[in-house]
Design a protein around this nucleic acid. Sequence first.
DNA 1: AAAAACAGTAGGTCTGCACCCACTATAGGA
DNA 2: TCCTATAGTGGGTGCAGACCTACTGTTTTT
Lengths: 146, 146
Amino acid sequence: MSSARSAPPALLGLSTYLLSRIGKAARGRLADRLAERGLRLWDMAVLAALADFGPHAQRDLVVRLGVDPSDMAKVVEQLANGGYVERARDPEDRRRVSVTLAPAGRNLLTELDAEARSVQDDLLAPLSPEERAQLQGLLLRVHEGL
Amino acid sequence: MSSARSAPPALLGLSTYLLSRIGKAARGRLADRLAERGLRLWDMAVLAALADFGPHAQRDLVVRLGVDPSDMAKVVEQLANGGYVERARDPEDRRRVSVTLAPAGRNLLTELDAEARSVQDDLLAPLSPEERAQLQGLLLRVHEGL
DNA sequence: AAAAACAGTAGGTCTGCACCCACTATAGGA
DNA sequence: TCCTATAGTGGGTGCAGACCTACTGTTTTT
C-alpha cells in the first residue's frame, strides 16, 4: 500500500515516457506564456518561419510547418489583425497571399524567444550549461529523424 | 518565397521546442500502439505503478500518478474488466478499494514495455547506444526537477 | 448521536488540436 | 472557351485530456 508520489521505475527507465512527460511540460509552460499574450504555439512558429526564411506564400507556410491550410488561414488572420504580419495578394498569381513579417512581428518574436528561453532555464535547471548543450545536440539529431 | 519543408532554425535552437515536438511524437506513437489493444497511456502507468510498488489503495494511485480521482476510477474499472487488476474492499477501511496486479496484468505490462522499447528504438534511431544512455540520463535528471 | 471528512463513482463540461468539406476566386491546360 | 487544378477561407466535426459536481457509503470527530 505505497503512497509516495514517486513515479514507477518501470516508466522512468523508458526514454519514451520521459520524453512524453517532459515534452508535455515544456509545451504546457510555453503555451501558458504565449496564452498571456493571446497567442498559441503556431503563432510563434509562423513568426519564426517568416523571420528565418523571409516572406512566404501562405501555402508554403502550410507545407513548411505541416499544418492544415484551413488552420493556417486562422493563424495568419490573427497575426495580421495584431499587426505582426502583412498579407498581400501576389500580383503574379492572384490566388496566392504572400505573408510578410512586420516590424512589430519581429519585435514580438524577440520577446517570445526570451519567454521560451526563460521556460528553458527553468525546465533544464538541473543541468549544467555543458549538459544543456549536450542535450540540445542529441535532441536535434533525434528531431532530424522526425 | 521559400517552400522547403525544413523547420525554422529560430525554433530548432530552442530545447523547449525540440522537447515539445519530440515528446509529442513519442507520446503519439506509444499511444497508437496502446490503442491497438484498446488501452491508453494511463492504463500502462497504473500497471507499472502496481508492478513496481505492489498493491495500492485507489486513492494512492491517484496521488502517485497525479490523476483526477474520477478519471482513475474509469481506468481501474477498465483494467478490472480486462482481468488485468483485481479490486477488493479494504476490510480495515471499507471506503477504500485496494487494487492488485493480476497475473494477466503482469504479462500485459511486459508486452507493453516491449512496445515502448520498440517505439524508442525507432525514435532514437539516429543515436548510438552510448548516446541513448546519455540522453536517458539527462532526461531523468530533468524529470526529477519536474 | 450528529456533524464533518473522506474514498470512490457516475455523470457532465471545457479546451485544444487535428481534420474535413463546401465554397469562392484565380490560373493553366486541352 | 470549357475543364480541371490550385490558394485561400469559413464553417464545421471528432477526439482526448483535464477538470468539476453531485451523490453514495464509510469513517472520524465532536
